[in-house]
Each structure stands twice: as C-alpha cells, then as structure tokens.
Design a protein around this nucleic acid. Structure first.
Length: 570
RNA sequence: GCGCCCGUAGCUCAACUGGAUAGAGCGUCUGGCUUCGGACCAGAAGGUUGCGGGUUCAAGUCCUGCCGAGCGCACCA
C-alpha cells in the first residue's frame, strides 16, 4: 500500500473513531489550493444528519482530532481540512520512489486475477487504419495498467480473415499474374487495397460480378477450391506481415492471434447446442437470437445460406478464449462502441449457454469512434488514413523541427519521439469521446503533447549528466531544504500517483494517466525556470536533485503505462 | 420511428464520478535565452457549461422536456 493511501486511511480511521461512524478514505478530496491544507473532508452530509451547522461541526471535530505532529486538522468553513507536514511527506514519498523505482505506484488490487484483453482486431486484406490505431494504443495501455495492479494479463487479437470483404478482394486479385506480384510489404498491402476497392465497385455495379463474389465467399468457407485457398493464404500472409510490422512499431505483441476462419467449424456445434436449448431459433431460413425478450435486438447466428455470421463465430471464439489459457476471470473485448448491440447479444447467448463459464466474465470496452474532421473515411472509396501514415507524418514533422534547430538526432530516437507523439495524442483523450482526427491539429509536438513530456524528461536527465554520483547523494538528503511551495506541490503530485492508476483501471481509460503526467511535467517546467538546481548550496542542491530524480522516475513510469518510451536527450 | 452515446472558450479537450474561484493546449496579443536544454516559461484576451424546468446545503455532473450531432437497429465484419 502506498504511503499516500496510508495517510488517507489513517485520517479516515481517526475520523471513524471520533464520530463512531465509518468514514472512508475515498471521501477525502484534494483541496483546491495550498492555504486550505492538503486534504479536505466536506461534512455537509454529516451536519445534516446530526442537525448541526456544518461550519460549527467542522470546528468541533477539528478540536477533537488527535494532535499528531505530522497531520493536523483544521476547519475551513464547512470543510474539515488536513495539513500534512511537508518534510514528513517529502521524506517518505521520495524514499518510497527510490525504493520501488519502476514499480512505484503499482498495487496488488488484481493479484491472482487472470484477465484476457482482446484488442487490435485488424482485418486481413484490409488496411490498418486510424481506428485500428486507436484500438491498439488503447488496448496496449489497458494491458499495462492491469499488469501494474498485479493482474496476469493475456493479450489476444482476433483478426477477421474471412467474409465478404475478402471475397471482393480475391475476385479482383485472382486476375493478377503471380509474376506481377510486388516484393515489398507496403506494395503488397497497397495492391490488396486496390483489389478490394475494385471488387466492391464491381459487387455494387455488375450483377455477374456479384454472383461470382458470392461464389468465391462460399469457396473460402468450404476451403475446397485449391486456387482460391492458395490466393487467400497468400493475401492473408501479406496482410499479417504488415500488421506485425505495425504491432512492433507501437511496442505491442500478442500471446495469441485468433483467426475468424478458425471458428467456422467449431461454431456450428455451439449454434446447434443453443438451438437445442431453445436459445436460438429458426427464422426465415436463418438461425437467430430473438433478443427482444431480454431487451436486446434480434441477431443472426447462421444465415439462410448456412454460413455462420460474425455472431455465430463469436461463440466458438468465446469457448476458445475461456479454455486456451485455463480459467480466466475476465475477458475484456476492446472494440469500438458501434458493436455494442452485437456484444450485448452474444454475451447473453453465451451466458444462457453456459452460465458458469461466462456469466459476468465478458466485458465490452466500448470506446468511441475515430472519424475524420474533414470528410468521411471509407476503405471502399480509398480515403482511409493509415496507422503507419500517421506515424510517418509525425516523424517527418519532428525531423523538420530538429533541422530548424540545427541539431542532429539518431533515427531511433526520432522514431521513439514520433511514436510518443502519436500515442499521447490518442491516449490523452478520454476513450469514451468521439475523436475527430485532423492530421495537422491532432499530432501536437508542443504544449500538451508527447514530445513536451519527453522534453521535460530529457531536461532532467541533462542536469543529472552534469553531476557525478548523484544517486548516492539522495540517501542523506535534508528534506527541510525543500521549502518552496512549488516543491511541496510537486511532492504531493508524486504522492497521488498510485490513485491515478486506480482511477485509470476503473473505467479502463488511460487518459487519466496522460493528464496526470502532463500536469506533473508542467509543474516541473515551471519549477525548473523559477528555481536554480545546480547553483544552490550543496545541501539544497542535493535535496532538489532527489526531488528531480523522483519526478523523472514517475514520468517514466507513467509514460510506460501509456506504452511510451523515453529518450535521454532530444 | 426506437435504442445507446454526446453537446463546456474560435478549435481540440479537462474538471478527481455531486463539492470550495469551470481549467489546459492550439490559435491571437505582450514579455523572457550572457542564467541547469526556448520542443520551454510568465502574462493578457476568450464562458449565461446547447435551451427550459426540477431534485438539494451544493449541479457542467442526477431527473425531465425540447434543440442539435454521432452510432446501432437480422442474413456484412
């Protein structure tokens, strides 16, 4: 348990004793400013319950509060506020960070929990676009946040390698002579994209083509046509090759990559079981789930041509996911909000099918959609923004800035900064907010941005480089020397870090962490400008270095949870 | 038409899940490198939180009615 939580628990325990009534630590709020103290407890509710005037009651409780040296109670109007001794907090927090280092802020709330996070979900034969990018960045961060709370996390990715979109692509792709196949990954996926666009156009405009495409789709499902099967395998491998490049580029990996095509056989058995149990029923030649009696919509599981739909295949996936890695406590499906009714229905069917296995263990993390600020994105029309294009664009912009400064920086570092810029731009916005993407505006390199935070971090490292053996100085720090109010604000900010991780877990929303690190970086930059570090007398300097060391550790930890790497210089 | 989500500064977003004076960035204007890194910092302008009603000590946050946008409404994934 973090030192900060201990302080809050201690105050809550004291209040509980005085009032003979349970007071919870989470009722304590941060004060808006330093003069009011550090933590506050609004006592309106209690005053009302006792029929008392809140301000008078606050004074009375403050008087009864035990007089400790380190935490003092005082009444501020209808709030009971607590003042924490600065040196006491500084010493303990800095010590805690020094000891726990990259584990600082972590907890064991999810110890012994096995959680599967299913994310990324690109479709082979189609492009990895901006929506997939938001998905993978969010998913990767959620995984890290859960791990920081002690959970054992299994990373999975479910990729749609079957269906009409592929049939449309292959319809056009089969006409290309293998001698004309491109050699680079980028050209290969570009070709698949072009074929898909052509196939889609043909499907809409040419009746014969439509029939041919439907035929190809059936052949893909049956796997009996060698030629189609080979083309399908080839195209899929091209796509996966590209996807893996991207996963690596954003520091993601998966314990298991499920393919939709792997589900088409097994799912028939589960659909049949569900039909026998009366969960699914026949309707117009299809087998459907009539969700209305559960307040849901009707969804098709097996279509009238006898092919399993996405819903049908989901049943087989669920059984795989809940058995391949032993018993799991929770499966988080990181999928955009548009699939909400799809998941509501499939979760219900799974629950009715096998309550013990699935009930309460499936969760759809319905994050919001990414769209374009200008125009509409459509892979059919070819105006999609690719995940890689965004990263490349950010990289070019960073190169430009470096060139303007006449600096030089290795490509590996520029890449890290570019990835940081893009990741931060996506993750700083709440996952539950529609993201209107605009290339120029969305990837900031200054202000509230990834590079700003990396710059702040690099700046601290730069100070350390000027000191020899600064780490050994921290042990004997005189914390009394940290007397500036900015220093205390920084220490308090460091103290609450563990609570931020908990907040990010509650809604599976890493934007809490992004916001926190930004504020911390901002406070540091202000401090950096106002207070000299290296010019201070020896003891003060050491105390300030100890503080800087803690700040840089927390920035690094927080960025780590967002899936962002740091650079020592930039 | 029904269901879900949303509406906060010119733009993009915060507001610790009902608490104290609604805050940041971008953009605009002003100032700051002879000082630990100017991808920085300080300051200014910018708000009837879409509109109306309600709940209570307290509402951007909760309930309700409008207005507006997005997503979803069975054989795509």
């Amino acid at each position: 348990m973090s030192f900060w939580i201990k302080i809050k628990n201690g105050i809550a325990a004291n209040l509980s004793k005085i009032l003979n009534k349970e007071v919870f630590a989470k009722e304590l709020v941060l004060t808006p400013n330093q003069e009011m103290g550090d933590l506050g407890w609004p006592i309106f509710a209690l005053a009302k319950e006792l029929g008392r005037n809140p301000a008078e009651l606050a004074k009375e409780i403050a008087k009864k509060y035990p007089t400790e040296n380190n935490i003092k109670a005082k009444a501020t109007g209808p709030y009971l506020n607590f003042v924490i001794n600065k040196k006491y907090l500084a010493k303990n927090i800095i010590k805690e960070i020094e000891e726990q280092k990259e584990k600082y802020g972590h907890n064991e709330n999810l110890k012994n929990k096995k959680i599967m996070v299913e994310f990324a979900h690109p479709n082979p034969f189609k492009s990895f676009h901006i929506g997939h990018l938001r998905n993978i960045l969010l998913g990767e961060s959620i995984v890290r946040v859960l791990e920081a709370q002690g959970a054992k996390v299994i990373r999975t990715n479910y990729q749609g390698d079957i269906g009409m979109h592929i049939a449309k692509c292959l319809w056009s792709f089969q006409k290309i002579d293998s001698k004309d196949y491109p050699t680079t990954t980028d050209l290969k996926v570009a070709l698949l994209g072009k074929c898909y666009a052509e196939g889609s156009q043909a499907f809409e405009n040419i009746p014969e083509a439509q029939a041919e495409i439907k035929e190809i789709n059936k052949k893909i499902y049956s796997g009996e046509d060698e030629k189609i099967k080979n083309l399908w395998t080839l195209g899929k491998n091209w796509s996966l090759e590209k996807f893996h490049e991207i996963y690596q580029r954003v520091y993601s990996h998966f314990d298991c990559e499920y393919m939709e095509s792997e589900m088409i056989t097994d799912c028939r058995e589960y659909i049949k079981q569900a039909e026998v149990k009366g969960i699914l029923e026949k309707s117009d030649g299809a087998i459907v789930f009539k969700g209305e009696k559960h307040g849901l919509e009707t969804r098709v599981f097996l279509n009238s041509e006898g092919l399993p739909t996405y819903e049908g295949k989901e049943l087989a996936l669920a059984y795989r996911e809940f058995s391949d890695f032993g018993k799991i406590d929770l499966c988080i499906h990181n999928v955009a909000v548009e699939q909400k009714s799809f998941f509501a229905a499939t979760f219900k069917v799974e629950e009715l099918l096998d309550e013990k296995r699935f009930k309460g263990k499936q969760y759809h993390n319905a994050y919001e959609f990414v769209g374009l600020k200008k125009g509409k994105m459509s892979s059919r029309l070819g105006n999609v923004i690719l995940g890689n294009d965004i990263l490349n664009e950010a990289k070019e912009n960073i190169k430009k800035i470096i060139a303007e400064k006449n600096n030089s920086l290795g490509d590996d570092k520029i890449e890290i900064i570019a990835v940081a810029a893009v990741k931060y731009a996506f993750l700083k916005i709440s996952a539950f907010k529609y993201l209107a993407f605009d290339m120029e505006e969305s990837i900031n390199l200054s202000g509230n941005s990834g590079p700003y935070i990396l710059y702040t971090y690099a700046r601290i490292q730069s100070i350390f480089k000027k000191i020899i053996n600064h780490k050994t100085l921290i042990i004997n720090t005189d914390f009394e020397k940290l007397s500036d109010t900015r220093e205390f604000s920084l220490i308090k900010k460091l103290a609450i870090y563990s609570e931020i991780i908990e907040a990010a877990t509650k809604n599976y929303d890493p934007s809490e962490i992004a916001k926190y690190i930004y504020e911390l970086a901002q406070m540091l930059n202000d401090y950096y400008h106002a207070i000299p570090i290296l010019q201070a007398d020896e003891e003060t300097k050491n105390a300030r270095l100890a503080l800087l060391n803690s700040i840089s550790q927390v920035i690094k930890n927080g960025l780590g949870l967002l899936g962002i790497e740091v650079v020592e210089e930039m």
